[in-house]
């Protein structure tokens, strides 16, 4: 028996994440959407999803007493951050006029600049960056196992992470600029895209996470 806790802090489409995990989990794995610090800390693995605005996200985490819980999970067990669940791991975000993050990964979160142009067509690039883009794996990782290089995943975001330690980048995507779409450090893996909405490639990544012991 193993358990996966999907942290519920009132933000985003938790049901999608839980359903996708259940879809790829073996029968002995329980997926639990929970806001309970005890349940999260008892789980074998933790998924930290999220959508919405950085300020609301941090406010909800604080209000629910989950800041230390997330930090403890990051220290102790296989941990997967998704979208806002990646961004709040950084030190700060430009969103909402400047918002402090959890400071688990060094670096900041920036908005895509206005006026970006597709060099081939000359068309303005839309913000949010929405749709299927390619993920270039910049280093091997257990969570990339069996996923072809440059596979497409589903993105929807207006902000991106700008880490200061390039060694923690596990994947990059190009949209006007190259940005880090996957970060890895020890037992932590966090992605900007939505594996739960990325069809086969996304389900493969989630299955890899469920089979990962947190070691490299």
């Amino acid at each position: 028996m193993s358990t996966v806790a999907v942290i519920d802090y009132g933000m985003g489409n938790l049901r999608s994440v839980a359903k996708a995990l259940e879809h790829v989990a073996d029968p002995g794995t329980t997926v639990e959407v929970t806001a309970s610090p005890e349940r999260i800390l008892q789980a074998d693995r933790v998924v930290f999803p999220g959508q919405g605005a950085a300020r609301d996200c941090m406010a909800e985490l604080t209000q629910r007493g989950l800041v230390d819980v997330v930090k403890e999970a990051v220290r102790s067990k296989p941990f997967l951050g998704i979208c806002m669940g990646l961004q709040v791991l950084l030190e700060s975000s430009e969103e909402n006029g400047g918002t402090a993050g959890l400071g688990i990964l060094p670096g900041s979160v920036r908005r895509f600049p206005d006026g970006m142009v597709d060099p081939r067509s000359g068309d303005a690039l839309k913000i949010p960056h929405m749709g299927w883009n390619q993920v270039h794996q910049t280093k091997p990782h257990p969570l990339w196992q069996s996923i072809p290089q440059d596979s497409r995943f589903y993105f929807v975001h207006s902000y991106y992470v700008a880490p200061t330690e390039s060694g923690q980048v596990a994947g990059i995507t190009h949209y006007g600029t190259d940005f880090a779409c996957a970060m890895a450090r020890g037992n932590v893996f966090a992605v900007q895209f939505h594996p739960e909405k990325s069809a086969g490639a996304g389900l493969a990544l989630l299955a890899n996470f469920l089979g990962w012991d947190g070691c490299l």
Binding site: S16, K19, A20, H23, V156, H194, K197
Partner: peptide, 27 residues
């Protein structure tokens, strides 16, 4: 949403914050 893992948009009859919340919670 329990069986198809690509983005889903729902329209028609969405009139309130509560309608939106229910659809998002449904997946």
């Amino acid at each position: 949403a329990a069986q198809v893992f690509i983005p889903l948009t729902v329209g028609g009859g969405i009139r309130s914050i509560n309608d939106i919340r229910r659809m998002l919670n449904a997946g």
